[in-house]
């Protein structure tokens, strides 16, 4: 049906969610990754990651407010992906692309992992 479509609304909402995160407003979970703590909103995490979707839809786990990830998960890679969730921007650096891809696989962020794979493939082609 006809309407007024605000084309940047999704981005504006995401921007404000990131502001809420940076001010620790209504954040409801701490993610512990290799001794580093990351505060976040469960709803954003589960909207972006299959792993967090599975955790927070589990009747035994949805109420947890501290989640420790596998000790093999890289804190820098997690930080980059958490920033991506709140900004839609994924920095491309040769030094971090592998760790970002492996962390994306762990978090079941399949589209990001596929994109990293394609980026690595195209880098090899060059």
């Amino acid at each position: 049906d006809s309407c007024i479509q605000f084309t940047r609304h999704a981005g504006d909402v995401l921007f404000n969610l990131n502001r809420l995160r940076s001010r620790d407003i209504l954040t409801d979970v701490t993610i512990l990754v290799d001794h580093q703590r990351f505060r976040a909103h469960k709803t954003v995490l589960m909207a972006c990651s299959g792993l967090f979707y599975a955790i927070f839809t589990d009747q035994l786990k949805f109420n947890l407010n501290l989640i420790s990830l596998d000790p093999d998960v890289d804190a820098e890679g997690f930080g980059i992906l958490l920033d991506f969730m709140y900004t839609s921007r994924l920095p491309l650096r040769d030094s971090s692309i592998m760790v970002v891809m492996n962390t994306a696989i762990y978090l079941q962020m399949d589209h990001v992992a596929d994109t990293c794979r394609r980026y690595l493939q195209s880098s090899e082609d060059i």
């Binding site: 007024i4 479509q5 084309t7 940047r8």
Partner: peptide, 20 residues
Amino acid sequence: RDGRLPTVKEAGRSIHEIPR
């Protein structure tokens, strides 16, 4: 015309900006 208005795209900001 069937009385419906056309869909309009609004490219400006849609909501307030939460301060830093």
